[in-house]
């Protein structure tokens, strides 16, 4: 418990559907230790992605808290509505969420979510730019570019640097997304159905890549509906009826 990198405690999430409400998460709790590869499984629409977004500080739960390295990610529940609509410069919690996304968390999405105007190199480099001020960038540009080229070589895309996302296959796009998620050396990599849009071969290649990362100590939290993919994780959690269960 004490060595947990990420802790979710009693997370609730409800979507307002007009006349009714959809209670997706009903008190989810989990612990992720450093270096662990955790897979969250569940049926389509069970709330896996919602949970992953909350864990990754992309979304805000109505109740419950997420702790990263022992520090709360979200404001106390009574203040959340205000902070969710306030400029992030006004809220310390909001600024912390942004800082976590910039430096501690990396995301891989099912639909890649690459910026279509940028080429492969720029799509990865932009993640480093986000954390740098305009004044500091000239000094950081060279090491950032070096890291970017190294990570793109690691994912096997060093020959596609100038290509735009529309010119790449699905597997290649997802590898660009992984490179973008890893370029700032995150503490946790969140992967939302990373193989969901890939064929079996590309999916296998991607999982091999993730396993390789995990082998060198990368903490990974992955969401999938595919038991075969989930089986490659250290630990599998099931999300059923809005609650997480082991196995």
């Amino acid at each position: 418990m004490s060595d947990a990198l990420l802790i979710a405690d009693g997370v609730h999430k409800t979507y307002d559907m007009g006349r009714s409400q959809l209670h997706v998460l009903r008190g989810c709790s989990l612990h992720v230790a450093g270096g662990e590869f955790v897979a969250i499984m569940g049926k389509s629409g069970s709330g896996k992605s919602t949970l992953l977004h909350i864990l990754g500080a992309l979304d805000v739960p109505q109740q419950g808290q997420v702790l990263f390295e022992g520090r709360p990610v979200f404001a106390p529940p009574k203040q959340r509505h205000f902070y969710a609509h306030a400029l992030d410069v006004l809220s310390g919690y909001e600024r912390r969420r942004i800082a976590l996304r910039r430096r501690a968390f990396g995301f891989v999405f099912q639909f890649y979510h690459l910026l279509p105007e940028l080429n492969v190199l720029e799509n990865v480099l932009v993640a480093r730019m986000v954390g740098a001020s305009t004044c500091a960038w000239p000094a950081q540009r060279r090491p950032a570019r070096k890291d970017t080229l190294a990570i793109l070589e690691h994912v096997g895309l060093s020959d596609r640097l100038k290509h735009r996302p529309a010119e790449l296959s699905g597997g290649e796009r997802q590898r660009v997304a992984i490179a973008r998620a890893l370029v700032h050396k995150p503490r946790i990599l969140f992967a939302d159905e990373p193989t969901g849009n890939l064929d079996a071969v590309a999916g296998d290649e991607l999982m091999a890549l993730l396993k390789g990362l995990h082998a060198v100590g990368q903490t990974i939290v992955m969401v999938t509906h595919d038991p075969g993919i989930a089986a490659r994780a250290d630990r599998v959690l099931r999300l059923e009826a809005g609650v997480l269960r082991e196995g």
């Binding site: 992309l58 400029l87 942004i98 800082a99 996304r101 995301f107 999405f109 993640a127 986000v130 973008r180």
Partner: peptide, 9 residues
């Protein structure tokens, strides 16, 4: 996407 990789509002 920009916000997901750390862009602020």
């Amino acid at each position: 996407i920009i916000k997901a990789i750390g862009g602020s509002s």
